[in-house]
């Protein structure tokens, strides 16, 4: 598979949110606005690219019986690095995402890709897979965030589209996350379904 093919595969055919339905906790928790969803997606993407690349490099040095602890140590290391960098250089993002950044460690997308892709492919292909899956996750979260923000608060990326009092507050709260996700998954599957 070509490098571009791997990226497209992660973005559409194996989109982590709309097709694989992985990583639902941050998907539902952080998408109260488009910006929040996008920040979370980008943070996850950074971790995915680094962890996929490194795990693919060291996959032959790790005995099978201890491969999960080794992968988790690598992933947790990168998550902490990303968290420290966000805290230092983007404190506003840190305030919004809070607990969800350290929780990337247990995001099943990251460990899932390490197991199913990075452990079997070359480092460069694995990094491309990280980019593809990461982009897919980022786009999905941004889209969910945008829908919720638009329907709930009447803004898009913080810009007012219509007055706030006409928005349905439910969409910013937890139930809106489930409703939006359900409709978007349905639409995505309708569009990509084989005729």
């Amino acid at each position: 598979m070509s490098k571009l093919g791997i990226i497209i595969n992660g973005l559409i055919k194996e989109n982590p949110t709309f097709v694989l339905l992985l990583g639902m906790c941050p998907t539902l928790g952080t998408t109260s606005s488009a910006i929040n969803g996008m920040s979370m997606g980008l943070a996850t993407m950074a971790v995915l690219i680094c962890s996929n690349f490194v795990i693919s490099c060291i996959k032959n040095l790790i005995p099978d019986k201890v491969h999960i602890p080794c992968y988790i140590v690598v992933i947790a290391g990168f998550v902490t690095v990303v968290q420290l960098l966000i805290k230092a250089y983007a404190p506003a993002v840190d305030e919004k995402l809070g607990l969800f950044i350290p929780l990337i460690v247990v995001n099943c997308i990251v460990l899932g890709r390490a197991e199913s892709f990075a452990a079997k492919n070359t480092p460069i292909d694995s990094a491309c897979d990280g980019i593809g899956i990461g982009l897919g996750f980022t786009c999905a979260l941004t889209l969910i965030g945008l829908c919720r923000e638009l329907l709930g608060a009447g803004t898009a990326f913080g810009f007012a589209v219509y007055p706030e009092q006409f928005g349905a507050l439910t969409f910013v709260l937890a139930p809106g996350a489930f409703i939006t996700l359900g409709f978007l998954v349905a639409i995505f599957n309708k569009l990509t379904a084989k005729k």
Partner: peptide, 8 residues
Amino acid sequence: MVLSLTVI
């Protein structure tokens, strides 16, 4: 196993 975990 011990060696690889320790190094990582």
